[in-house]
Nucleic acid binder design. Sequence first.
DNA 1: TATCCTTTGAAGCTG
DNA 2: CAGCTTCAAAGGATA
Length: 437
Amino acid sequence: MPQLNGGGGDDLGANDEMIPFKDEGEQEEKISENVSAERDLDDVKSSLVNESENNSSSSDSEQAERRPQTRPDSESYEKTREYFSEALRRQQDGGFFKSPHYPGYPFLMIPDLTNPYLSNGSLSPGARTYLHMKWPLLDVPSSAGIKDSRSPTPGHLSNKVPVVQHGHHVHPLTPLITYSNNEHFSPGTPPSHLSPEILDPKTGIPRTPHPSELSPYYPLSPGAVGSIAHPLSWFMQHQGQPMYSIPPGGFRHPYPALAMNASMSSLVSSRFSPHMVTPPPHSLHQTGIPHPAIVSPAIKQEPSGDNISPSMHSPVPAKKEEDKKPHIKKPLNAFMLYMKEMRAKVVAECTLKESAAINQILGRRWHSLSREEQAKYYELARKERQLHSQLYPGWSARDNYVRTPSHSQQVQTCFSTVYFLLAKKNRKRFISLTQVC
DNA sequence: TATCCTTTGAAGCTG
DNA sequence: CAGCTTCAAAGGATA
């Protein structure tokens, strides 16, 4: 069973993520037992998905010959390459891209499956191995059991890790998972001179070679590291400066007040620094620090049900207060992190764009992951919650909770209103309300 | 334009 | 405390 805490150093105790793996042994057995039954269900439930997956997996060899490679603008590519070179240099200097304290965290943690190309354009042997291990099957039946992983401990609250949403739709973890750069570099569009030309027979869109075409394991060679797109790119581009033009020492720690261990520090610096440098006005943390999990209330209205403030009685001030209050999103859970990272790859492989179908595939692939692979994401999620809680000590999931009253609650509310009106002896309104109810 | 769909997991709520 | 509900992401489909 994987030790997710990375040793005894982490006293934040994420036993919650340990439980699922404990159950996974049983789960795996159940998988084999129920494969046929679940497959039937899957067939009924997501024929579209299966079709897509079958298409992608069965015709890979054909697609490998037909899919085109978009040939990115040579100038922009050169820029990108230049940025990467700079990033690589920084990393080798032990600066910002220094390997994280926590093994398997930040962007060096998980091999970049979507871009398994070395800087010289070749595919590292390790990448082949990893990819092969990563995607042995496309159509793997899902199974239950992971849900038991939820933490039963009250202390879990103290382990919550924060996430704030960035306005640019760059997830806070981007520094951690977007190294896989699904958002920055389409897995299907590596530079033409860096990969074989593979066209999608249907769309003509270039795609990432399927695992069967590529090779598995993806060691993080310096070239591979250099090909990692860093989330700071949006900032650098915004500033009109080259990406990764970061001081050798990286960004200064943005949260001096936070007592963090080394892994936390690496997380914060790698993930949140960009947003702290250019604070969007709407995502300022209470400390004045912008955070990507904060979105404008205009994007999502803050629920008012549970958070009754003193100003609730005066609608105008309440609205103003609501406008000011940023919407702090929930930290992503392990599966969400996995989805975010792998979505682009699945889209490229299956030529599907509908998120519902993509999510079905991702859900099955999630179950097909080994416990070690899942552990990475559980650990990421745990760090997410941990950081989130430190950034927003007072935040609760309740803040974003909008309860849709159940029918009984609606009836109850209706009757309460009726009684109130009766007390007021407002007979006319009582009658009309009675009719409505 | 808004909501739905679809997934898993975390956390809140209810009885 | 078990079970249900909501919300995180994503983007095409649908009303």
